[in-house]
Write a protein that binds this DNA or RNA. Structure first.
Lengths: 212, 212
DNA sequence: GTCTATAACTCGATAGAC
DNA sequence: GTCTATCGAGTTATAGAC
């Protein structure tokens, strides 16, 4: 057990357990090709093992996919819930929303494409599973926006549009990354720098737009 | 020929040629399931014809996909090029950019997911084909932003971030549509209304944020 | 042009030796 | 635990009658 744990700590391929190598390979292949496009053979090749081993460890392609997916969102969804449940001033909320969102996605840059694809195929079923049958409650935030407009603190704007704007600004770059790199000619290093910079700037961009 | 043309004009299924019905069905299925997830049987069923007819008209699944895709972007890409090539004031440019972008995508709401997916699989090859080996030139717009900041017309902002913001605000809603519908509880009608409203509001949102 | 039947192939899954 | 070999379901693609 200790040996296994020690092995787990090493990132070196040779020191990884087969199970870990499979998980790492599957993640990569599923992200690039999606559930339908991914082949067990691709995953086996990527992991440098035999196809039969995949079934030995995870029984089926579907189960393997599920493990990957649950691991990916297990850390992600609670943080989303937390963001929507916060009780701060609107400007603070916007700041935390953007920072947390971009941080979470920077750590898991493949999640947006993954989620967007599955959600497009099986919206209700997939998203329900993803959010553990408990969808984040937007109404608190939407109501707060409404109130701040009434009070004259921010400029009039449709609360739904404002929230959609925030989501767009935080999520899109991770979906459009290859397109942006192609158009701008940036390399990975430059793109990552852009994302880091963005972490500070997005909230300001939103707040600048609505503050009086 | 005239008869065929007249047939083309009718949207009624019975008056369409088999070829048209296949294309329409294929579009629908490919959008919902992606290239890998789509089944020729699904397309045949959707078109109300036999599977063999698909091959009679388009030889292979790959060729059919290609036809759908080329048709989809043939109208799309030139308009993108035009947007970047415009010679107006920055605020006018932002307005046209957002309006044109959202208009184009409202007419082809499936393109973003399509492009984002393909671009993630084969960035360079795919995007080059898509843009006809002639990538839109961002530098004009980026330079103009730089200049307006120097002149003190707009607040300081990284030109790249500003452009990425505009793209995010215009494109993301079409990718995140099912997620947004799930979270907000909106139906298709409400969502489409949101997009129409957005057409007017996005440019204002951007301009509000950067104008002094 | 359209259909039925079936060949050819891909891919997930399993059996069984080591 | 790991491998090779192979099965069987599901799919793309084609042959051939009408």
């Amino acid at each position: 057990m200790l040996t296994k744990w020690l092995n787990n700590m090493a990132n070196n391929k040779k020191d990884q357990t087969t199970e870990q190598r499979i998980l790492q390979a599957a993640k990569k292949v599923f992200i690039h090709k999606g559930m339908a496009g991914a082949r067990m053979q691709d995953i086996a090749d990527e992991a440098g093992i035999n196809k039969a081993m995949l079934h030995y460890y995870f029984r089926s392609k579907e189960k393997l996919f599920e493990v990957i997916f649950r691991e990916a969102i297990s850390n992600f969804v609670p943080r989303l819930h937390a963001i929507f449940a916060m009780r701060n001033s609107l400007f603070e909320k916007i700041q935390v929303f953007c920072r947390e969102y971009i941080n979470v996605l920077s750590e898991n840059p493949y999640i947006p494409l993954f989620v967007v694809n599955e959600a497009n195929k099986q919206p209700y079923e997939f998203l329900n599973t993803m959010f553990g049958n408990q969808k984040p409650d937007l109404s608190g935030l939407l109501l707060q926006i409404e109130e701040e407009i009434q009070k004259g603190i921010i400029k009039p704007i449709s609360p739904a549009q404002l929230l959609l704007n925030m989501m767009s600004l935080c999520i899109f770059p991770f979906l459009g990354r290859p397109i942006w790199k192609f158009l701008s000619g940036m390399d990975d290093l430059q793109f990552n720098f852009l994302m880091q910079q963005r972490n500070d700037e997005v909230a300001s961009f939103v707040i600048n737009s609505i503050k009086k």
